[in-house]
Write a protein that binds this DNA or RNA. Structure first.
Length: 288
DNA sequence: CTAGGATCCTGTCAGC
DNA sequence: TGCTGACAGGATCCTA
């Protein structure tokens, strides 16, 4: 799940747990999940935590950085005096660790950080700190939503004559950090149909969409992304963090709170897509 | 340059 | 109960 707000929430939470701590050992349980030499990381101290798009950057002493990308099902679980977990929400947040989804264990001595990832799409990559900007993934990223200039956003949308606007929103080169959840939520918030041709949006619509993207992500950040505290409710039962802010995502079958139409789920650009047919209308004709 | 599809991998759920 | 296929919140690689 981890999209920008989740990764940012992890960055903030993890900072309090691991900043200034020394890595005693790195245990790689799945080769595919760790790019680099584990022993190189040994003995280094965590000196900072940054984020770029959906990538978490853990800066270590002596010019080394761990780039963590959670992709679809990655999660980071810190187990020490306190427990902090974020990423793809499931029972690993609260259960015994390591488990069969554990791919990497970063050992801080008295505490451990577990990188779990069911589908093995995510990874931790070792990069010299001064070369992070040159990493192919980092270098290709578009601007952070809050830093994106509306006119640049509009110009980028204009380049896509036939692609649905939803597909363009998901493109990290276009704008960094949006995934399937926030793409649907942003489109709903600005009342734009996900299948509108990206190039057909007016400058005003583009501006509105960018504003909505920032708004829905701010709201999720406020709610604390998908972390242990909104996964386990006060009464001990399991909650769904989407309930805290989602208006359309996984809401198919329920009523739009703006116009009372039924929220629909379709497939756009190969992805499950949720929208309200009442307030996200597709204009008549072929030039949509 | 853009556009569309397959693909990496594991798990869950619906339907038979 | 057991099997099968569809699908899952990401990004890349390939082809056209």
């Amino acid at each position: 799940m981890p999209e920008l707000p989740e990764v940012e929430t992890i960055r903030r939470g993890l900072k309090d747990c691991i900043l200034n701590k020394k890595i005693v050992q790195v245990e790689v349980c799945c080769e595919k999940s760790f790019v680099g030499v584990p022993t190189e990381v040994k003995g280094r101290k965590v000196v900072g935590l940054r984020r770029r798009g959906k990538a978490l950057l853990i800066d270590l002493s002596d010019n080394l950085t761990l780039m963590v990308h959670l992709r679809m099902t990655g999660q980071l679980i810190y187990v020490g005096e306190e427990r902090f977990a974020g990423g793809h929400p499931n029972e690993s947040f609260v259960g015994e660790l390591p488990n069969r989804q554990t791919r990497v264990i970063i050992n801080f001595g008295e505490a451990k950080l577990f990188f779990n990832d069911q589908r093995k799409f995510g990874f931790i990559k070792v990069i010299p700190t001064d070369e992070v900007e040159e990493d192919a993934f980092i270098a290709s990223l578009g601007a952070e939503p809050w830093e994106m200039m509306p006119e640049d956003f509009y110009a980028k949308l204009q380049r896509h004559k036939t692609a649905p606007v939803k597909a363009v929103l998901l493109d990290q080169k276009m704008i960094a950090g949006l995934g399937n959840i926030y793409a649907d939520e942003a489109l709903y918030d600005s009342k734009i149909h996900p299948e509108r041709k990206a190039g057909s949006l007016s400058a005003t619509e583009a501006r509105s969409l960018l504003k909505s993207a920032c708004k829905v992500m701010d709201k999720s950040l406020e709610a604390g992304g998908s972390t242990i505290q909104n996964y386990v409710k006060a009464d001990g039962t399991r909650g769904n963090y989407l309930d805290l802010f989602a208006k359309v995502y996984h809401k198919d079958g329920s009523r739009c709170e703006r116009c009372d139409c039924e929220i629909l789920k379709t497939r756009v650009a190969g992805r499950g897509t949720h929208y309200c047919p009442g307030c996200q209308e597709l204009p008549e004709g072929s030039d949509d």
